[in-house]
Simulated scan of single mutants.
Amino acid sequence: MFFVMFLKSETKEVPTFQKISFQEACERTHELEREYRQQEKIASIDFHVLNEENQELYAGTYQLGSHFAMNLLDHIKKQLSQMNLKPQQEAIKQSFLKKLYNEVPYRLHPEAIEFPEKEEAESTLTSGTPSKGGYISKLSHLHQKMIYGGSALSVLLLSIGCWTTVSASQQQSEKITQLEHQVKEKKDLTSLYEKAILGDTEKAIQQLSKEKGNKDLQVNQDVYMSLLLEEKEYKEAVKVGGEQKVEDRLLEKGDVQSLKTFLESFPSSTGTFDVAYLEQRWEDVLSQKGVRMTEKRQRMKGYALLRTGKVEEAKKQVNHLQDERIHQKIKQYEQVQKEIKDLQKQIEEEQQKDPKNESKIQSLTEEKQKKERTLNSI
């Protein structure tokens, strides 16, 4: 099963920093796409597609109301179709798309629907309850991380509810008792999470510390580690989650000072790489050896290559990644770079003329400077 997490959003009608099913994400984007087209509005939403282990499979930016796609599935399909891949990578892409198609009902497949340009609000092409702003995220940074790391909790609770119903129908009283005990444990944990969200992290840490050896409560461990990181108790966090997991979580937070502090106790080339990237020291990023390369760090290295003008190397670095944003940045960088070269050529040609057209040279020079600023901002 696949999930979606919406991140930065220009609309309040999607649930940011909450993991929802891929089908629900398609339902919502389908409905909002129709509404935004009618209202002639456009809004940008960054999103990640995750698997059940919270591993990132795809990252992109959806433009609501742009008429590019009808929903999230259609968007991903069209973006992937633009990528030139090797046969083996193409096979992986097709497998990924097939799995995405299997996640949603046929009525949401791009081949099954078509939006009229002027569609009535009561159209029956979409289903689901319209968003009324109820999904606006008002969560603290810690709360967002806890929802992300602890999303399996809600899934487990839902599963327990389903299993309890089945068990009751089969009169398996022993199973019901066992599941009721699990529900109680989860409710107790939820109470702890609520205390932490309200600022009482110390009490939550104390309780979770007592339960950290409970192998049945893996979500517990993730949240416990997140709380420790909020309190900057890095050594204890490493005992709970391991050095690599803590390192990855600190990178996700993007807090340079926290990473530097962590490196004082746990030095590594990976951590040095992360700090250099966050501080935009591109040459230092590329000079690091022995870096533990996750997909995120592969994107980071690709971007560092791009910012140092190594466009072809950047392409090779990220060619296999299903991340439309980095591919779009490379295309944009190449385009602007070409425009700068063309302007420089025109300036040189004008300077060789006799008499020179100083006004035109000045205009071309200003345009070139503008393009150079654009290049530096990509």
Rank of each mutant, 00 (worst) to 15 (best):
V223K: 02
N220M: 09
K245T: 14
G199D: 04
E247Y: 09
G254W: 06
K215T: 14
T177L: 10
E247G: 09
I205T: 03
T164N: 01
K210V: 15
A204R: 00
L217K: 02
V166S: 12
L208W: 01
L250Y: 04
E243N: 08
Q257W: 04
K184R: 07
L217Q: 03
K260A: 03
V166D: 13
K232H: 05
I205P: 00
L228N: 00
Q257S: 10
G254H: 07
E174M: 04
V238N: 06
L229S: 00
Q221R: 11
K212P: 01
E236A: 13
K239E: 08
Q178F: 05
D216W: 12
Q206Y: 12
E247I: 10
Q170D: 15
D248P: 10
G213Y: 15
L227H: 02
E180L: 10
Q171K: 15
L157K: 02
V256P: 00
L198S: 15
E236Q: 14
S167T: 09
T190F: 10
S173I: 12
N214M: 11
L217I: 04
E185S: 09
Q182L: 08
E174K: 08
I176Y: 06
K235C: 05
V238C: 09
G161A: 00
I205G: 02
Q244W: 09
K186D: 05
Q207G: 07
W163E: 06
K175P: 02
V219S: 06
G254F: 08
K245F: 12
G242R: 13
E252W: 08
T177N: 11
Q170K: 14
S154Y: 03
Q206P: 03
H181S: 11
S151G: 14
G199S: 06
L229D: 00
E180G: 07
K203M: 13
L192E: 06
M225I: 04
Q178E: 10
I160Q: 00
Q244E: 13
L250N: 03
K215P: 13
T165M: 09
E185G: 08
K260T: 05
E185H: 07
V256N: 02
I160Y: 00
S151Q: 15
V238F: 08
A152V: 09
L227T: 02
K186Y: 12
L228W: 01
V246K: 04
L157D: 01
L157Y: 01
S169Q: 15
E236T: 14
S159Y: 06
K215Q: 15
D188I: 14
V166A: 13
V219D: 07
G241F: 04
K239D: 06
L228A: 01
E202P: 00
K239Q: 10
K232R: 10
M225D: 01
E185F: 03
Q257G: 01
H181W: 06
M225K: 07
L217C: 03
K195I: 08
Y193E: 11
W163D: 04
Q244N: 15
T165Q: 09
D222F: 09
S258L: 08
L156C: 07
H181E: 12
T164Q: 04
H181Q: 12
L229C: 02
Q170L: 13
N214R: 12
C162E: 05
K215F: 13
Q178K: 07
K212Q: 13
L250M: 09
E230V: 10
K175G: 05
S258W: 06
E211W: 14
S151E: 15
V223Q: 07
K210R: 15
Q182A: 05
D188A: 13
G241E: 04
Q257Y: 05
K212D: 07
V183K: 00
